[in-house]
């Protein structure tokens, strides 16, 4: 489905993700997990095939950008908070162009940070936060515009086990309470165990798609 130069990063992947699902995408390095994530949110356009989002095929980069701004949240392994902005300001960054009034942006961001347990750390710069706190702030940012889909790329990859567990608890809780669809790319079996559906990729191909009864509860 996607070719970059001579490399076929993804091929023959047909995947339907339902509303409010909690899906883990597993696979070795270079298996095409990140490419799949980027195709799912329109950052990469497939050379053949299509991505249908909520019943529509977004036409072009502008449509995808609008969807990413309003319907899709992102959490990255390297966190990527803007270093010169406080946690409160970082959470407001995706809100430009979506929430017009500054006071509404601040109120919403403060509420989200409180929701992820950073009420007392809102005015801190990323450099003043621990790795776990930074990832919590990034999760709050991913929820800035009330998305229906959150894509997380190795969200615990750079965290110690205690912080990783805290972040996973938060993800599980948010999935249960906010009703968002959550797609997590991971190597981590602890993460995978919390997901009800496991999608495995190898060499850019979908090798298994299983539903684990009782997982994620």
């Amino acid at each position: 489905m996607f070719e970059a130069g001579l490399v076929k990063a993804l091929g023959d992947v047909t995947l339907t993700i339902g509303h409010q699902e909690l899906v883990a995408v597993l696979g070795a390095s270079g298996s095409g997990k990140s490419t799949l994530l980027h195709v799912l949110c329109g950052l990469l356009a497939p050379t053949s095939g299509r991505v249908v989002f909520e019943g529509m095929v977004p036409a072009g980069q502008r449509a995808w950008a609008r969807l990413r701004a309003t319907r899709i949240g992102f959490v990255f392994q390297s966190i990527h908070l803007l270093p010169t902005l406080t946690a409160l300001e970082n959470v407001q960054v995706p809100m430009f162009g979506v929430i017009t009034r500054e006071t509404d942006r601040i109120t919403r961001a403060a509420g989200l940070l409180e929701r992820v347990g950073l009420r007392d750390r809102m005015r801190h710069l990323p450099g003043q936060l621990s790795g776990g706190e930074r990832q919590r702030a990034a999760i709050a940012r991913s929820l800035a515009n009330t998305p229906t889909l959150v894509l997380a790329d190795e969200p615990t990859g750079n965290l110690d086990s205690a912080s990783a567990a805290g972040v996973l608890d938060l993800f599980t809780e948010l999935h249960a309470t906010e009703g968002v669809t959550l797609v997590v790319i991971t190597h981590d079996l602890d993460v995978a165990r919390r997901c009800r559906r496991l999608v495995r990729l190898a060499d850019g191909r979908l090798v298994s798609d299983t539903v684990v009864e009782g997982a994620g509860s």
Binding site: A65, R66, R68, F74, V93, P94, G97
Partner: peptide, 16 residues
């Protein structure tokens, strides 16, 4: 460059 890519990933239009 990563921060700018991140802004695009968050849905910032190119004009912004």
């Amino acid at each position: 460059s990563r921060e700018i890519a991140l802004l695009s990933a968050m849905g910032w239009p190119q004009a912004r």
